[in-house]
Structures are given as structure tokens and as C-alpha cells.
Design a protein around this nucleic acid. Structure first.
Lengths: 246, 246
DNA sequence: CTCAATTACTGTCATATTGACAGTAATGCT
DNA sequence: AGCATTACTGTCAATATGACAGTAATTGAG
């Protein structure tokens, strides 16, 4: 790592931004939070919530939490958030050299259509619209969303991430709907009951709490202490091509 | 995302660096490449190879490939490399605001003790020495190595990453040693044969090639087209606490 | 209050996979 | 030829999986 001063070349200064991919389930559909840009570039386009570092003393994670609060009015302590990666292609921002650190946040389904923000508008948008390109995004944000969705789909298999889509307590049927929605696949209800309950530390009963809807009341659970799922919940393969191998 | 100009505050300019965690297997031990720093800060300390972006037009991935060539004389097209994440704590570099994008590279075991570099020295160091803290590193590089090792251990389960530790062709026994070394666990040889060969697209026979050492010649394989392992090779759990759950 | 509708849960069984364990095959060396 | 060494092939009981159907507890309509 060369030194800053005394070098024949000046190390290029770069603006560091933070972008947020906030995913949730609304009405059994996979949604991502988008902001309508009020300024150039890409004015009027939809983009991920985010912004530059506030000052030289702010860490990127702090900045992510701040943006989460500012732009989505969400509390970082009550939802799952993890770093997705850095996006640093030279031409990704027409204004100049901007490197963006993307974060993936998972929120329980909020009834509100997103509270007040300083951007022109904010909306929960179905993930499919973004992935298919029918809802074009500014910068390389479509790529970031695609990476985030892929990350979420994979982590559902090996981590208790699905519980982050639910509230404090949830029923097994609700948990199953999370898997089905995110994966876009149907799961056998009975086998799901069996597998989920076998994984040590995944979910644990939430007292005598019961939730009434229309049919039989369901037992409620909360997320357990496990950070990895052993055994994992394997995602069903879309289709099998042939029957070779062996 | 606010604009650069016209803002009441000046967005903080940040130096962007790239750090490389290059992992390999040498003599059945898990090693990471370290560089002895020739300049302040941390002069004389060991650190990950890396450096600042060359110029404003260089992408972070390009920079990673360049450093890979400069500091380790490795060709990025012949080994596995992926982004690990961004490390952007404000105080991680005493010189000022430096954000580092870390990359994880996996190289086959090289016989050479690392070719010429512009750093004072370079050495393959056992990963355990770094993780245990017996080999202290500059900056937050110990954390980065820990993350890289964890990433590698996890990806071994679900991706063909293990083949990146081998050469172009390899035997099943060699592949098993990769798993055993990285995981630090013993695997049953017979079950390993069975499971590895069942995974579609993981490995495929490399012609009539055979490799003689001391005993019976082994069949050689090369990496197959699969990018994910179905079913995965599950890592044995270190120990089982009790027999509860249900 | 009965009955249908609705949602939540509990079992069963054939098959596939896993983990634990031992023997056979092909080479180099003496 | 025989031994050491490394590579591979089988077996079997226990377990996990996938596919399927029935029972339980509630609400609401008549």
C-alpha cells in the first residue's frame, strides 16, 4: 500500500456513496423500496435509496443506518442489514468517480406505503418489475438489486434470514409464504412443517400466544438463536434436464 | 443521492484501496500471502498485498487484478477471484479516510515462495497464525483475513471453489485434502468419493490421464461446468452439544 | 346450533441419502 | 515375490426426503 504523500502520482480521490436494497413482502409479493430522483443525473428516474458519506468521520455502516432512517424511516436495530458489496466501475456515475457500497436490508411487511422522505417520492416496487427491466433504474442499480435478490434467495437456505421478513412472532404458515414468495416456488406444507421444526435453533415457540384469523388458530414462533441452518432448507430445482450422471 | 456541487456541505473525499487475500495450500497447510510493509504506517509489519487505485479511470476489479500481478505475479485469468466486501471504518487507516475493497483469490499450491515484488518481502503464512493473532497484521487486515477464510469455508460447501486450490487437473484424493485442510476436519474417504461423483457437473474425467506417485495411479479430473453444488457437500459439525429439539 | 368453509396441524410409506466400516486393485520398491 | 503405498469399490443399517391424505380448531352463515 503506497503512501499518500511523496508519491509521483496523486492517488485519485473518490466519492463514496451508500445504497440500500430494502426488501420486504407486501401482499405476498416480493418488493424493493425505490426512490424517485429529484435531481440530476437521472432526474425523475427511480433509484435505490442512498447517499454520500456525511463527513470524513462517518463509517459506511453508520451511513447505511442513517440513510435507512432518513429515506425509509426504518430503525436499523429492528431489522436485518448486511453489506452486499462495493460497486466501483469507473463509469457508473456520470458525475465522476463514485464508489458505492451497497447494503441489503430485510424488513417485515409494513402496512404504510413508506413514510416521509426528502426525495420526491418513494414506492415499494415488485422485484420482478426491476429484474425484468420493466422498471428501469438509475446507475447500475438494477445490477445491485439483482445481486441482492440472489443473495437473499441463497441465504434463505442456510440462514434464518426468512424470519427477518416476519414480525417479532410468526406462524409456520407465514414463514412458509416467505420462502415461497422469495423463491417463487411452491413448497409442500407438511414437509415444510417437519423440516423447519427439525432445524435446531431456527424457530422456538412464542409462549401461549395464538393468532386468530378465520380458521384454526396457529401457534406462534419467534426466531431462535441459530445463525446457520443445519440441515439447510434446500431450494427446489426449477426443473431437471436429464437423468445422466453416476 | 445528493449532488456533488451546489450542496451546503462538501462530500468527503476518500481514498480507495484494494486489498487481496490470496489463499493457497502449501504442504497440506492453509496459507495466506502477506507482504512486509516497507513504509509507514505499520512499517515492518505484515499486511495484505494491495494498494490504491492507480487513477480515476481504473475500476476496483481492474485494480485488484493489477495488484495480483504486481505483488504476487499471479495471472487473474487462471485463478478464482471474487470480491469479499468493503471495509470502511473511519479509523482503520491512520493516514486518513481510506476505504478498502477486499478481494478473495484462490490459487493452486505454487512451489515458488512468491516471485519478485516491490515490497520488502513477501511470504506465505499459515492462516492459523493470522487467525490466532500470533502473526499480527497491519490495519484491520486480520479481520479481513478472518472474513475471507470464513467465506472460503462456506463456499466450499455449495460451490466448486475447492477446484481452484488444485491445478488444471487433480485427483479425488487431492480434492479431498483441500476440503480437509480448509475445514480442518477429517472426511471419510469412501463417502467423499461417492458424494463428489454424484454432484452433477462438479468434476469430470480428464481423459486417460494418470498420475504416478508411489502407489496405484489415480484417475485425474478437471472442474466441471457446475457453479453450484447440488447436493452440497456439508461440513461436519465440530461437536454435538446435546440431544434436544424436535 | 348445525354445518360448511377455512386454516392449522399430524401421519404414513416407499425411496433416496447418509454415515460408518472393510476389503480389493494397481503400482513402486527391495 | 512380497511388502508398502496409494487408489478405489461395496455393504448395510439408520436417517432424511418427497409425495400424499386425513384430523383438529376455529369463524360465520343459516
Amino acid at each position: 500500500m503506497p503512501e499518500i504523500e511523496e508519491d509521483p502520482w496523486e492517488p485519485p480521490l473518490v466519492l463514496v456513496a451508500v445504497d440500500l436494497v430494502i426488501l420486504t413482502l407486501r401482499a405476498s409479493t416480493f418488493h424493493v423500496l425505490l426512490i424517485e430522483r429529484g435531481i440530476e443525473p437521472y432526474q425523475g428516474s427511480w433509484a435505490l435509496p442512498g447517499g454520500f458519506l456525511n463527513n470524513a468521520g462517518e463509517g459506511v455502516f453508520e451511513a447505511a443506518l442513517r440513510e435507512l432512517k432518513e429515506e425509509a424511516d426504518l430503525d436499523g436495530t429492528r431489522l436485518h442489514i448486511e453489506q452486499l458489496g462495493a460497486y466501483g466501475e469507473p463509469e457508473r456515475d456520470p458525475r465522476g468517480r463514485v464508489l458505492s457500497v451497497a447494503y441489503l436490508a430485510i424488513a417485515p411487511g409494513l402496512p404504510e406505503p413508506v413514510a416521509g422522505t426528502d426525495a420526491s417520492g418513494a414506492a415499494w416496487t415488485p422485484v420482478e418489475q426491476v429484474l425484468s427491466g420493466r422498471a428501469p433504474l438509475a446507475f447500475d442499480h438494477q445490477l445491485i438489486v439483482a445481486d441482492a435478490v440472489e443473495r437473499a434467495r441463497t441465504k434463505l437456505e442456510h440462514s434464518p434470514l426468512a424470519t427477518a421478513f416476519c414480525g417479532e412472532t410468526f406462524t409456520i404458515a407465514e414463514l412458509r409464504r416467505v420462502y415461497e414468495t422469495v423463491w417463487g416456488a411452491e413448497l409442500d406444507e407438511r414437509n415444510f412443517y417437519r423440516k423447519v421444526q427439525r432445524v435446531p435453533g431456527f424457530i422456538e415457540p412464542a409462549g401461549t400466544d395464538r393468532r386468530a384469523g378465520k380458521g384454526r388458530p396457529a401457534r406462534t414462533f419467534r426466531a431462535g438463536p441459530a445463525e446457520v441452518l443445519h440441515p439447510p432448507l434446500t431450494r427446489p430445482e426449477p426443473h431437471r434436464e436429464s437423468e445422466e450422471e453416476r
